[in-house]
Structure formats: structure tokens, C-alpha cells
Amino acid sequence: MTERVFEVLNRTIEHPSYLVAKDKLVEAVSISRNLNGAAVFLSGPTRCGKTQLLNDVQVELGKRPDLSSDLLEYSGLSGASDFVIGSIPTKPNSKTLLSAMLEAVGVKAGPTQSAHDLQARLCFAVREKGIRTIALDECSHCAERGAHLSKRGATDHFKWLIDQTGVTLILAGLPKFQGLIDENEQLRDRTLSTIELFPYAWSNGADATSFAAAFSEALCNMQAAGGQFDFDFEELVVRLYGVTGGRVGMLVRILQVAALKMKSKTLTSKIISDSAIQLTQKSLNAGYFFGEEAPQKIDLVRSYIHVMQEAGLDVTPESLIDLEALEAA
């Protein structure tokens, strides 16, 4: 039973900000394909659901390459998709960046190949396999200290791939990657408007409602799999917001750990509390948010601000409590 409850939490929760981002990304891919290639940056703090969004869009848009059945069989591409997903490694250099893109399209890079050879293989593989969209997660690794290639060097690889193949390149990662786009005018002019998937702000009534609705949908999925609940929903959603800072992806992660901890079919606030504390570092204050006293509204606002600022994002105060929380941050 625990396995069934855990499994249903892998279903996408189609909350409002997710749906807006998904619609924009689907439209951007369509525009890019008509323009014979472009880049799209999917930006957001960690655990906001970017990876899940990429997987869902791949399922919706990915098709078998438009190749003859004989060529598909010969290339081992039967049932393959023209929409592939990869991930950029930490501290990338030219070779590891190109190797990651090659592996995304299903080609293993040789350890002794030069960057020039890897470029040629990548270009050939994209064309041969009929790849139309490549999504690269963790693109912000290119903007971190310790990356073994210049900012210009990283973005030039992306610009080159678009120009050579006409592929749509979806780059997903932390907001810090925006700086690399802005600093390379050639990639910037090949990149469509940035798509943002951000956490919900508790001080915004509609956002708070959307976060609560996402929690409710997750519970409904668990209930359909046989789960039962013994807690006050209104109280628990506030505590969970405090720990997650409004991130639905983080909310689901806590519930997944809770599902693994369930020894019966009943989910309790104690199980969720223990899961949140075990899953998070002390800086997220899970112990405080699940303490005896209910958290104050300003604590929830501070949690959201912490997530945004940690991702390098500015927060514009829209109320007095926002301003007070910002001054204390």
C-alpha cells in the first residue's frame, strides 16, 4: 500500500503556475521550430518543478523522427523520440558539456576525442537521428564558480548548435544563467523570452490558495491509492508552506518521504513533520515550522524571500509585511 501511495505522488500536480509555464514552453517550442531553431530558458529556484515540466513537455511534444522505417531500424531508433533530455555536469568544460549533449541524443562520447571532434559528432547525430528538441537541465552549472570554460565559451556552444542544426534548445536551471544569456549578444538574440517557474508567495492571496490547492490535489491522489489522513488540513498547509517556501516540487518531495514512512494506511501530521525535518537542512527551519506554536505570517513571508534570494532573485515588496520581512532578511 505504501508503494501505491508513493507511486501516485509521481503524478504531475497541475497547479496554476505550472500550467502557465507549460503553455508558454509548448508555444515557445512551436515558434522555435518555425524559426528553424532557437533557445528557450526555463528559469526557477531549485525544487520548483522544472525537471517535471521538461518530462511532461517531452511526452506531449516528442514524436518519432521523420525517417524511413528502414533507417529507423538500422539506426536502432524504433520508438525513439525527437525530443531528448540531458543534464549539464558540475564544473563543465568544453568536452564535458559537448559530451553531455551527445549523451542526451543517445551517443557515447569517446574519452580521447577532442572538442572539435565532439562538435562534429553532435551535429551529425542530431541530423541523423532527426532530433528537433534538446532540453538540458542544470544549465546554471555553466554560470557557477569553478566552471572550466568561460561564460562566453559555454554560450557559444549553444549558439553554434542552434545555427548548425536548427534544433530547439531548452535550457533549464537557476536564474543565475540569465546573466550568461544577457552577456552573449549572439545567444541572446537567438533566445526567446525567458519562462519562469517560481514559488508561490504567501502574502499574495491567490498564490496562497494555489499552494493549498496543490497540497489538496496531492492528498486526493494519495487517497485514491488507499491512503487516509489524520490531521488538520488548514494547520498543516501553513506549516508545509513555511518549510517549502512555496515550492510545490519540495512539497511533493516531503510527501513522498512521508509515504515511505507510513506503516499503516493513515498519514499523520507527525509522519509529515518527521519527514520534513529528515529531508531538509536546519536552515529551512523545519523544526520551528512544525513546533508547538503555529508559525506567524511574517515567518512564511521570510521563507519565501529566503528561497528567492538564495536563487539570486530580487523580491519586490507588495505589502507592509513584505517590506518588514525584507528588512529583517
Rank of each mutant, 00 (worst) to 15 (best):
K63H: 12
L42T: 08
A38M: 13
A39S: 11
N36F: 14
D66V: 00
C48R: 03
S99M: 07
L71E: 01
G79R: 06
V105N: 07
S43D: 01
L53Y: 12
L54D: 01
L72H: 02
L42K: 11
R47T: 08
G110R: 14
L98E: 08
G62R: 10
K95L: 12
L67I: 13
K22S: 03
V107G: 10
Y74P: 02
I88K: 04
E103F: 08
N34F: 10
E73R: 00
G79V: 09
V59P: 03
V40H: 02
S99H: 06
P111K: 15
R33G: 10
I31N: 01
V84F: 05
S87H: 07
S78G: 07
A39T: 10
L53F: 01
K50N: 06
G79S: 02
G86N: 08
Q52Y: 13
K24D: 14
K50A: 00
K63I: 04
V29P: 04
L71V: 00
P111F: 12
E27L: 12
L98N: 06
S30T: 08
L67E: 03
R64L: 06
F83N: 07
V105E: 04
D56T: 15
M101Y: 09
S43T: 11
I88C: 03
Q113M: 14
L98Y: 05
V57I: 15
L53D: 12
S75P: 01
Q52G: 09
Q113I: 08
T46W: 11
E27P: 03
F83Y: 15
